[in-house]
Nucleic acid binder design. Structure first.
Lengths: 156, 156
DNA sequence: TTAGGTGCAAATCATTTGCAATCTC
DNA sequence: GAGATTGCAAATGATTTGCACCTAA
């Protein structure tokens, strides 16, 4: 647990440093947004980020949220996830491309550790004439919570 | 070549049979759409299908194209591809989930043969508590054509 | 005759953009 | 003061929907 908090704090500091050294201004909203995202493991959408940010900054606009997310993506510090879910979700804690699982029912998103991803990508490269290949991998499924409630329902 | 045409014709017949046995009417538009898709290897978007269909059926509407595509997807005969490209592309020739490559520059889409996909999916299943897992895998890259023209441009 | 199909126009929803006001270096 | 940042409202673009008409078993 101590490790997790440490890591999260590190990520926050890292992001702030990154934004500043890239010449971006660190406004109160941006600071709050970065803090939010550095600690958030839920892979939120722009809309969800907007809703949470408004608790502290009632005047913040959705456009600003999108703006800041774009900046983070440009810097390679946020990974946009297109999970066929309507809206784009963002992974700011681990911005390098990695697989995810999405719950088909509730939209919950989790990271998926695939230690053989590199091998998989290497094989893909060897089987296509396309260059500069980057993986976009996720799995649709049913999360444990939804599975449990579905089961309960069918037992009735 | 003979094999390809045969396979394509088979797919066309297959699709027609599938639609009819599922109780769907085979209207002239649907027939034309199915024919188009059975032979099309370009993974077209609804819009592209619409444009081509209008050559033969000037009054066809985009809503009808979406309708018919939805029917095919429901029957498991079309694979919708969300390639982070703005619009959904469709693979009707090989409707079972398989990896693709997309060109970042021109949007070209090709199938990618990954004979170890099953193994990869098996490993994913063993590493998550999500059930009923289905893969959504594609790679972004630069197609040979775009790579060639980019090279040419930088040589000038 | 009746449910399935069709076409049009309007609605929806995520995202982007124009622009004037504001802030920061 | 120049350039970045913000917020609002309007624009965009893919997809869906409401609804009246049509058409084949």
């Amino acid at each position: 647990m101590a490790m997790m908090n440490e890591a999260a704090t590190d990520r926050e500091t890292e992001l702030i440093a990154r934004l500043q050294s890239a010449g971006y201004r660190l406004t109160p909203q941006r600071l709050a947004l970065v803090r939010l995202l550095a600690h958030d493991t839920s892979h939120p959408s722009a809309d969800q980020i907007y809703a949470r940010l408004r608790a502290d900054f009632p005047t913040v606009s959705l456009a600003t949220v999108y703006n800041t997310l774009d900046v983070l993506v440009e810097l390679g510090e946020a990974l946009p996830l297109d999970l066929n879910e309507g809206s784009t979700r963002y992974d700011v804690r681990r911005p390098s491309a990695h697989p995810h699982v999405v719950c088909r029912l509730c939209g919950r998103v989790d990271d998926l550790e695939m230690d053989d991803l590199a091998e998989f990508v290497r094989k893909a490269r060897s089987r296509t004439s396309y260059g500069d290949l980057h993986p976009r991998i996720y799995f649709e499924g049913i999360c444990p919570t939804c599975a449990a409630s579905t089961e309960r329902r069918s037992e009735e």
